[in-house]
Simulated scan of single mutants.
Amino acid sequence: MEFTINQIAQLLNGRVEGDGSHKINRLEKIQEGKPGGISFLSNLKYEPYLYTTRSSAVIVSADFQPSKPLFSTLIRVEDAYLGFTQLLESVEKLSKPTFYGVEEPAYMDASSNMGTGGYRGAFSYIGKNCLIGDRVQIHPHVYIGDGVTIGNDCVIHPGAKIMRRCRIGNYCEIHPGAVIGSDGFGFAPQPDGRYKNIPQLGNVWLEDHVSIGANTTIDCATMGSTHIGKGVKIDNLVQVAHNVHIGENTVIASQSGISGSAEIGKNCVLAGKSSIVGHIKLADNTTVGGNTGIMKSITKPGQTLLGYIGMEMKDFLKSYAVFKKLPDLQNKLTELEKKQ
């Protein structure tokens, strides 16, 4: 595929600064740019590369002002990151292979129904009494258990498993190896020291526009639903335990874990390796830093929490400033003890 800079600018509602007639045939990182490529500059940490890149075009925000001469033509848009994302989406639509029809062998029980315009890949399995919407892509080696419902325009990538009675909304994407509706970790201690399995009879409910990363697991509820709200984006290798509720438009990064019956608010951010204990609530718009553990409910919205045991960011930074000084304080204390 090849387009002129002017054509790309028109797609992004951008303004060209330089020669817009150059042809673009690939997307490139700004630090690796070569003629014929297009890059973007959003994080000013990468600004030095703008003056050395050989990309034919660079997408920048409208208010950005370069401080040195440039090789590249600029495309000015309202937000460079969002503009480049829009370009990626357009390229994906043009280059993405089209899947439709039924490959063999693929199995769907006679009691189940799938809408029009869909795709069933080889070795996929659809159990009894399933209801699947229009234009759904079910890739090879996908397992869909009995009684599952899936809305329109969903993509279930190879090797994903959706267990019995789970509900998937519209425009959801479940990446390879994800497991939706695995049994929750429920065991009752017995007088003799053994643990008795507690049946997990609930399901998982994903609302619309949810994305689940590769090899992420979401446990079914003991009763009711483990609920993932509209627009939630979950990265690879995340564990969501039974009866958890995650509010809409929350994002969760890789290797995070959420224990049973925790309630995560709307528009929250959980950075990598963060952990949430069970049966607590996290207020809306809370940001949990990487490797941070949340041990109690957070009721004040909009906080940023850091530390092994999550603290409000200002308190954590004050404590950390003291922590760094502990060796010096210890030496001073030792000197004072010697003088006594």
Rank of each mutant, 00 (worst) to 15 (best):
M1C: 05
F3S: 02
Q10V: 00
L12D: 04
I24L: 05
R26I: 08
L27I: 12
L27H: 04
E28K: 04
I30G: 00
E32N: 12
G33T: 03
I38E: 13
S39M: 06
F40V: 00
N43D: 15
S55E: 14
S55W: 15
S55Y: 15
S56A: 11
S56D: 13
V58L: 09
P66W: 11
P69R: 14
F71A: 06
I75G: 00
E78S: 11
D79S: 05
A80Q: 05
L87S: 04
L88G: 12
E92L: 15
S95I: 07
P97E: 10
Y100H: 13
P105I: 15
A106H: 12
M108Q: 14
A110H: 01
N113C: 13
G117C: 12
F123L: 07
F123H: 11
K128N: 10
G133K: 00
V136Y: 11
I138P: 02
P140C: 00
V142G: 07
I144K: 05
G147D: 13
T149V: 08
N152T: 03
N152S: 05
V155P: 02
P158W: 13
C166M: 13
Y171V: 05
V179E: 06
S182W: 14
G184Y: 11
F185G: 00
G193T: 01
R194E: 14
P199F: 07
N203M: 09
V210D: 09
S211R: 08
A214N: 01
N215C: 15
N215D: 15
C220V: 00
T222Y: 12
S225C: 07
T226Q: 02
H227S: 11
I228Q: 02
G229A: 02
I234P: 09
Q239S: 08
V240L: 07
A241N: 05
N243K: 08
N249F: 10
N249Q: 03
V251N: 09
A253F: 01
Q255E: 08
G260S: 11
A262E: 00
G265V: 01
G265E: 07
L270D: 14
S275M: 14
G290N: 03
G290V: 04
S297M: 13
P301H: 07
L305K: 01
Y308F: 12
I309G: 00
L317I: 02
S319N: 12
Y320K: 06
K324F: 06
Q330Y: 13
K332L: 06
E335N: 04
K338N: 14
